[in-house]
Design a protein around this nucleic acid. Structure first.
Ligand SMILES: [Mn+2]
Ligand SMILES: [Mn+2]
Ligand SMILES: [Mn+2]
Ligand SMILES: [Mn+2]
Lengths: 140, 140
DNA sequence: CGCGAAATGTAGCCTCGGCTATAAATTTGG
DNA sequence: CCAAATTTATAGCCGAGGCTACATTTCGCG
């Protein structure tokens, strides 16, 4: 083979890293949502909303705790740490921008909401900034 | 908990399915690229371009063969089946549209290329259609 | 030709993120 | 206040997708 384009490798690598962060991001955002609604996030509710079996949610929460994003005691609710809350806020904001951008270029709202759930995790900060600038331009 | 929004669950489910298809899509596209350049795709080249160790590429190719997307004989190159070629074409086209859309809303080209590698796998046919329509409108 | 280098295959390890089945704790209501 | 229902925990299975180490085959070249 000739040379290997480093940009291309970087793209695949970034996509792999984003995929591995996606679960964390969705759980943290959901825990934050549930906390706002009910004051705490229960494992059962997390599992129901994410569409997984509850042991799957339990495992995910264990990982969040390992990473210092959440805390919990046995048979009690799950709560975000400050670090977790900060991540949730970032993720929530990005989710909204992605949906808005999709809608702005003509994607039906319902479809935008579905696709955004996956797309959001691959939107870098620079792309996010471009989306925001575009939305601002378009609105004003 | 109160009710559980089925649309939201569907979004997470779609994102999970897309993530599991992503690897297949990238490999098939890359095999097609290498075939165009060199007449065949070698495991070493696949691994180098995707940024993984060669046993990882070998495993992935084994899966493609299982799924009827590629064929190969020991110590020889990998080739796509008709089904594989068709998928490669679809994936390549979508990749281009995603990059073009990102550029059109103001994302720098280099960044667009990086982010598209992950985003593309989460763009549904309806969103793709909207992107194409937007690009057509903007160009004309 | 034949030998060393390069490519490919294979074995086996790891983590992650699904799942089911079963056990234990907690909550609820009669 | 106790029994049943609900919730949570735990054990253990699976496949995917990474990796390293090592074996084997093919290739290139003197
Ligand atoms: Mn998401
Ligand atoms: Mn989201
Ligand atoms: Mn890709
Ligand atoms: Mn691609």
């Amino acid at each position: 083979m000739t040379e290997t384009d480093p940009t291309q490798i970087k793209g695949f690598d970034r996509a792999r890293q984003a995929a591995s962060r996606a679960l964390t991001e969705d759980y943290v955002e959901m825990i934050s949502d549930l906390a706002a609604e009910f004051g705490e996030a229960r494992i059962t509710d997390l599992a129901a909303r994410l569409g997984v079996a509850h042991p799957t949610a339990t495992k995910a929460v264990a990982r969040l705790k390992r990473e210092g994003l959440a805390i919990s005691r046995p048979y009690r609710g799950v709560f975000l740490t400050e670090k977790g809350e900060a991540l949730a806020e970032t993720v929530r904001a990005r989710h909204r921008v992605v949906v808005a951008l999709l809608c702005a270029v003509g994607v039906p709202k319902e479809v935008a909401e579905l696709d955004a759930e996956g797309i959001e995790h691959h939107v870098s900060s620079r792309t996010l900034a471009a989306f925001e600038a575009y939305l601002t331009r378009k609105t004003d």
